[in-house]
Design a binder for these strands. Sequence first.
DNA 1: AAAATATAGTTGTCTATACCAGATGAAATG
DNA 2: CATTTCATCTGGTATAGACAACTATATTTT
Lengths: 240, 240
Amino acid sequence: MIDKQSPIPIYHQLEEKIKQLIETGELNPGDILPSEREYAEQFQISRMTVRQAINNLVNERFLYRIKGKGTFVMEHKMEQPLRELTSFTEDMKARGLQPSNRLIHFEILPASAELAEKLGIKEHGPVYEIKRIRLAEDIPMALERTYISANLVPGLTEDIVKDSLYAYVERVLQLKIKGGTQMIEASISNEEERGYLEIEEADPILLMQRISLLEDGRPFEVVKSSYRADRYKFIIDLQR
Amino acid sequence: MIDKQSPIPIYHQLEEKIKQLIETGELNPGDILPSEREYAEQFQISRMTVRQAINNLVNERFLYRIKGKGTFVMEHKMEQPLRELTSFTEDMKARGLQPSNRLIHFEILPASAELAEKLGIKEHGPVYEIKRIRLAEDIPMALERTYISANLVPGLTEDIVKDSLYAYVERVLQLKIKGGTQMIEASISNEEERGYLEIEEADPILLMQRISLLEDGRPFEVVKSSYRADRYKFIIDLQR
DNA sequence: AAAATATAGTTGTCTATACCAGATGAAATG
DNA sequence: CATTTCATCTGGTATAGACAACTATATTTT
């Protein structure tokens, strides 16, 4: 079950093993796990190594510990496994809807003062502007404007944007996106939004702005989205 | 600097020390930290103890590590240190506004099917309903309805609610609130909301629903809030 | 000059051990 | 019978040491 010769770290093997036990239902929410010492004995590994595996799962909210009692499986239903910083595409799939895109605009323009500050570049520096309509089951859900520093992600083309931007950035450029800040507010629609989203003047919209960060904390992109309020709501998992 | 006799764990002392260095500007974003071995040598503690401190700060996104190079301070400015599941009160204070409450309703009623499901209790089971107006600088910002199972939090009174519900639950009942799920949508206001929030018929509102969970994953409360869209926006820190 | 190699420094993984502190139930005590 | 004590579970903290994997620099070889 645990291969000490494997190049995959032992603690990671154990993590995966425990995750699997939860997924297959052999461990149910609220169940107590074997003690750290039991695991260490069973697999002939050090208790500290067991702790490293369990620490990671506790940080990921799969397990929780109570001193003197034991380690337990989280009650959390995990309908959507930790919805945080999901893309529209992932989001819609999780809701069982067929997502699609319509690219309506792609150009390089000089950064406004606001954009430059948010992207951590100098004013008038080159940024891509990518406008897209996001659809679910061919119904327009949102108008999305993405801004990325052209110096940070050189060689971006319409084709790459049409394919998958995130995959290109992570695989080809070897940049890892790690998190960000999101702002959500409600507003009245403007004319551009009404046109693309096919809504009436009185209909409210949800405005979302996200600033995504790279692993080292540098800003990667600013995304401004306008969602149809009648068709969309944000769901966020919180932790503290 | 590090007190080995203190009841406060050494790794925690080191965490606080490093956080302080970042806050005071002695360590700046992008700076490299002394190596783990240097810290261990300097304070005459084990390298594993240093690692435990740094691990925690890496998990909290204060630091990041690069194998073979070192440990660095995150670029992220941390204007608000990890805003997640903050109360309205904390939220307003962080924005430099004076928050206040107006309790307008407090009773025990039988749970609807929807509430019962969200709170994990049986239908028609007793729940507190607490209605409050949330104000900032004496301007109404939100109408908030909180629902809590009366069996989970016995002995709740109007006075406790007026004081601090969270403090009562954590200190007196020894229950720890650990996270939850939040939903945000936009809508048109209804008459009750227009009355309390002093807005016009055409003004959109932000609807927020939060389900808070206890440490063991049991639902603790359902909060439904209606925010004035012209005065409020949600800011969320994301990570993945 | 360029390429390969050594070397020293970093974090990553892992071991074996020790003692502390909270929880629990059984046994001793009143 | 109720209470206290104790033994023994649990996770929490801490140590000292070892080797692997990765990075950067200096040195040697080609």
